[in-house]
Simulated scan of single mutants.
Amino acid sequence: MKGIIIAGGNCISIEKLKEIIPDFDIVVAADSGLKHLNAVDVKPDYLVGDFDSVDKSLLAEIDISITSVVRHPVEKDKTDTELAIDVLNELNVDDITILGGTGYRLDHTLSNIFSLRYIYDLGLNGTIIDEYNSVTYIRGVNAVSMKNEGTYISVLPISDIGAEISLKGFHYPLDHKCLIMGSSLGVSNYIVKNEGTVICHKGEALIIKARD
């Protein structure tokens, strides 16, 4: 079962949002992410947050027969996005996509990106997407295969020990290469065959698919 969280940051185009929403079994709005769903006339299954930034007129229009409202205090230990992740985890989803998780607030953007590790620790698949990027998390002995979509692929180590990475089917292949944290060696690669594979042998890394 697949769940999607719509947060309040930069979202994808209205046309793409309309196209992908039906692919998900459960739709969760995290606070002001409600505005993006309102733009495509979609009622979320859940609305989660402290509601400090959501448009109050939109909040007043919520039909509780359609949308379950999960309200939290403003002073809390988790972000609205992380609270939305908890809701989906309790609903036994297998896969979580976050939209609107990136934007002008760099602290929120980084927090949302690092929430992919939290999702992974829950035993779920997690992805953050916006108009230009898709971000996933990989750790330990693991592999991610992807189709050639003409995008840049970057592998960024995020653990103290770095990440030991192999890249198959890429213009710049790697074979058990240790990327230290802060290294730019894994930035702006691309797939040269129909499919490429990122293999993590140890450590932790983010895999970012990006387009200009």
Rank of each mutant, 00 (worst) to 15 (best):
35 K>F: 03
107 D>I: 05
69 V>A: 13
85 I>A: 08
29 A>S: 13
25 D>I: 06
159 S>Y: 09
137 Y>T: 10
69 V>I: 15
67 T>Q: 14
158 I>M: 11
77 D>Y: 07
22 P>Q: 10
25 D>K: 12
137 Y>K: 09
98 I>T: 08
31 D>R: 08
15 E>I: 04
188 S>N: 11
24 F>Q: 02
5 I>P: 13
199 I>E: 08
116 L>D: 06
177 K>Q: 07
17 L>R: 06
156 L>D: 07
165 I>L: 06
69 V>N: 13
77 D>H: 08
141 V>N: 09
147 K>R: 14
104 Y>V: 11
4 I>M: 11
110 L>W: 00
56 K>A: 15
127 T>G: 04
186 G>C: 10
187 V>G: 00
64 I>N: 10
189 N>H: 06
87 V>P: 05
49 G>P: 08
28 V>P: 11
155 V>L: 00
150 G>Y: 07
144 V>I: 15
65 S>W: 03
124 L>R: 01
23 D>A: 12
71 R>P: 03
21 I>H: 04
89 N>L: 07
202 K>T: 08
39 A>Y: 00
26 I>R: 01
204 E>A: 11
113 I>C: 05
75 E>V: 09
10 N>W: 04
42 V>R: 15
108 H>R: 13
93 V>R: 13
120 Y>V: 06
165 I>Q: 01
62 I>H: 01
81 T>W: 12
26 I>N: 01
169 G>N: 02
146 M>F: 14
128 I>P: 00
17 L>P: 08
181 M>G: 01
178 C>Y: 05
151 T>P: 06
94 D>H: 12
154 S>Y: 07
149 E>D: 12
130 D>I: 04
39 A>V: 00
90 E>H: 09
40 V>R: 07
66 I>T: 11
148 N>D: 15
175 D>L: 05
194 N>E: 13
4 I>L: 14
3 G>I: 09
105 R>I: 13
105 R>A: 03
96 I>E: 03
138 I>Y: 00
73 P>R: 14
132 Y>F: 12
70 V>G: 00
31 D>G: 02
146 M>P: 08
104 Y>C: 05
94 D>A: 09
109 T>A: 12
179 L>T: 03
182 G>V: 07
32 S>Q: 08
41 D>Q: 09
1 M>E: 14
194 N>D: 12
75 E>I: 09
128 I>E: 03
117 R>E: 15
1 M>G: 12
170 F>M: 04
171 H>M: 11
101 G>Y: 05
30 A>W: 11
136 T>H: 08
207 I>D: 01
176 H>F: 03
10 N>K: 11
149 E>H: 13
99 L>T: 06
125 N>M: 14
74 V>Y: 07
45 D>N: 15
207 I>V: 13
174 L>Q: 05
15 E>N: 07
72 H>R: 15
96 I>Y: 03
143 A>W: 02
95 D>A: 03
193 K>T: 05
77 D>K: 14
121 D>R: 10
160 D>F: 05
31 D>P: 07
152 Y>V: 01
106 L>H: 02
149 E>C: 14
23 D>G: 04
132 Y>S: 14
51 F>D: 06
140 G>Y: 00
207 I>S: 01
23 D>F: 03
85 I>F: 06
135 V>K: 01
171 H>D: 09
71 R>F: 03
129 I>N: 01
65 S>R: 15
178 C>P: 03
